[in-house]
């Protein structure tokens, strides 16, 4: 799937024998048959877990589009996940159960919101951009908390999964495959976009915005478009998340989730198309495994597994410059 040079963002021809390509193909193949394996093990929990992984991967693919290719460090992308989740929960509470309606609402609200917030945030760059995106996410978080009619602090349960034409999302396996296909589509789209003339300019705004401007590229327009596109992908992830958990709450927009999305992108490999999928698998598997691991060794501290997660993230930032997938030969 990915076709990047190890040291370069610039994609060259896809080589089927390259470690990255092989890894991507193997991971996708395993994900494709996962429900069957889980079915054989009679463990439906793992289908839900894998759906969750894919939803995080989807949001991270969205974030990676601006973070990995556009150099925009948004520490607030969870707000769009939050938005997507409420675009399911609020209509559902009024009896609107159509998944298409939920999706349309999420996108219709997300685009103007992201365009406004992005336009303000992009007036700055560097550290200020990081902080502003964080502050905006916090603003939306408080906005959701104050929705007293829709659960306020406690959030809002969703009665049933969205209806989606002939698809029965209440079946966990169906929801899994819908998510899986969405992720594949997002991967393909971001791959195409990165290689396109638009992508060339977007990557240049990361590498040398001053030069791109001096050449005559209106880089703000490129950055804002990319920002809105990435927000929409996160909003769609939010729609899926609310369907998985049958719940929407302000916590979906918590800044820790924004942080986790960045961790996923870096862990997988910044600026690689497939990296977010690998990053999501590793991070969520770790969050699942750490408590079990501690329970087996120091049962008293089972609930304190975040201590190790924190250290892990710290060392990822310090040592893992290219990420797991990014370290493979393209």
């Amino acid at each position: 799937m990915s076709e990047m040079k190890a040291s370069s963002l610039w994609p060259v021809t896809l080589r089927w024998s390259a470690p990255r390509t092989i890894t991507a193909v193997v991971v996708i193949a395993l994900l494709a048959v996962l429900p069957m394996i889980a079915g054989a093990l009679e463990s439906s929990y793992y289908v839900s877990f894998a759906t969750r992984v894919l939803i995080y991967a989807l949001a991270a693919i969205g974030l990676n589009f601006i973070l990995g290719f556009g150099g925009m460090v948004s520490l607030g992308h969870a707000m769009y996940v939050l938005l997507g989740a409420y675009a399911v929960a609020i209509p559902a509470s009024h009896g609107v159960t159509s998944g298409f309606a939920h999706m349309a609402l999420a996108v219709a609200v997300c685009i103007p919101l992201a365009a406004c917030l992005g336009a303000v945030a992009l007036r700055t760059s560097g550290i200020a951009f990081i902080m502003i995106t964080l502050a905006f996410a916090q603003m939306l978080f408080f906005g959701a908390v104050s929705l007293k009619d829709y659960g306020g602090d406690d959030g809002l349960t969703v009665g049933a999964r969205s209806t989606l034409g002939g698809l029965d999302l209440s079946n966990n396996t169906t929801l899994y495959y819908v998510t899986f296909v969405t992720v594949l589509v997002a991967l393909y789209l971001s791959w195409r976009a990165v290689l396109s003339p638009f992508g060339l300019v977007l990557r240049a705004t990361k590498s040398n915005p001053r030069r791109a401007t001096a050449l005559g590229h209106p880089i703000f327009r490129y950055q804002l478009t990319a920002y809105v596109a990435s927000a929409v992908v996160c909003a769609i992830a939010g729609v899926l998340l609310a369907n998985l958990t049958l719940f929407a709450s302000p916590a979906y927009g918590a800044w820790t989730l924004s942080g986790e999305l960045i961790v996923i992108v870096i862990l997988g490999g910044l600026g690689t198309v497939f990296g977010p999928v690998v990053g999501a698998i590793i991070l969520l598997a770790l969050e699942e495994a750490l408590p079990m691991l501690i329970e087996a060794t120091l049962p008293d501290y089972k609930s304190n597994w975040m201590l190790l997660l924190g250290l892990f993230i710290f060392f990822v930032a310090l040592l893992l410059k290219r990420g797991v997938f990014g370290s493979l030969k393209p």
Binding site: L67, I130, G259, I262, N304, M306, L307, A317, L318
Partner: peptide
């Protein structure tokens, strides 16, 4: 700045949990 954000995000989780312990 990205690495800095990530590393100090990890430290936040670490310190919060340390206090909890």
């Amino acid at each position: 700045h990205l690495d800095q954000v990530l590393a100090t995000f990890g430290l936040i989780l670490f310190f919060n949990e340390l206090i909890r312990i």
